[in-house]
């Protein structure tokens, strides 16, 4: 009951956040975003035709009315039709979000798990050659542009210049085998790039935890390294780890990975978002921004609940 009350209260407190995010982003969209009018006009438009198109797009309506309409769309989850394709925004998201999830989840999970493992190793061997090797590798991973990594991995794994094992691009997924075929190179590229950031972050957290008294005491009592790292270090470091992982989720779910989706020809929500930004497709942008804000509020709530799960002394108040 306390949990339910806490959840409802937290969701209620999230409303100003959603209003703030949607208001600012809508303001930017309307006044600074691309104007689709001139994309949609023919070659010799008259002033009257320009006005007609602006009217069709709703650009001539007062800002507050348009914003109120946006809130109504968000409340009813009915964002209308894309300005570009004419397809229902709901259908677009329904089709593309699962693809992005399937695409980025393996890299997200592997990148975080491997990051934690490497961070544990580095933290345990702090200051020694293994630590330096892992940290050096991390810096290299962080230093190389994602774009370069993608192109290099495509060349290495997917062209006759390299192994030519995987398809360069596409997403013809109909079973686990085809899924593996299309997701492997994007996953390897994602892991390569995120591993450095994750490892460095987690190492810093773990090193701090390892310097605490209870760890020193456990070590003095001869606790085996694996047990010590898992029970005394990792478990007690879960708060920052959870925070990092949870707050990455909205970006993973909604924004996807634009570069990955573009270069590998994967029809996910990241590419849809990017196209909507560049073309000024406001119905799609409104949906993405609004849903991301809502998701953040939900994530905030879930994070608090998870904090309590891993750290029972934290009170849900």
């Amino acid at each position: 009951m306390a949990l339910l009350q806490y959840s409802l209260r937290k969701l209620f407190y999230g409303i100003p956040l959603i209003l703030g995010v949607t208001f600012i982003s809508f303001l930017l969209m309307v006044y600074y975003g691309p104007d689709r009018t001139f994309e949609l006009l023919g070659k010799n438009p008259s002033a009257e035709q320009i006005e007609q198109v602006r009217h069709q797009l709703g650009y001539d309506r007062p800002f507050l009315l348009r914003y109120a309409g946006y809130l109504k769309e968000l409340a009813t989850l009915n964002f209308g039709f894309s300005d570009s394709t004419g397809e229902r925004v709901g259908s677009i998201l329904k089709r593309t979000v699962p693809i992005t999830l399937a695409l980025v989840l393996p890299g997200f999970v592997l990148g975080n798990l491997a990051g934690i493992v490497l961070a544990l190793i580095a933290a345990w061997h702090r200051g020694r050659w293994l630590d330096k090797l892992i940290m050096g590798g991390s810096v290299i991973g962080m230093s190389i542009s994602f774009l370069i990594v993608i192109i290099a991995f495509q060349v290495i794994f997917s062209t006759p210049y390299g192994f030519n094992w995987f398809p360069v691009r596409g997403w013809e997924v109909h079973d686990l085998a085809s899924y593996s075929r299309y997701v492997t190179v994007p996953t390897l590229a994602t892991v390569f790039v995120t591993l450095g950031y994750n490892t460095r972050f987690y190492r810093a957290v773990l090193v701090e935890e390892m310097s605490r008294d209870h760890v020193r005491t456990a070590r003095a009592y001869g606790t085996p390294p694996a047990v010590l790292l898992y029970r005394n270090v990792l478990k007690n470091s879960m708060i920052p780890i959870i925070t990092r992982v949870m707050f990455s989720i909205p970006l993973v779910v909604i924004s996807g990975s634009l570069l990955i989706e573009s270069y590998f020809g994967i029809p996910g929500v990241g590419k849809v978002t990017f196209d909507a930004i560049t073309t000024g497709d406001q119905p799609i942008l409104k949906a993405i921004v609004g849903l991301t804000a809502v998701l953040f509020v939900v994530i905030l709530l879930l994070t608090d609940i998870l904090y309590r799960a891993v750290h029972p002394r934290i009170d849900l108040k």
Partner: peptide
């Protein structure tokens, strides 16, 4: 993933 790949290579739509 590589095992999946091996199967994927022989798989045909």
């Amino acid at each position: 993933l590589a095992l999946g790949l091996q199967t994927g290579c022989t798989d045909r739509q």
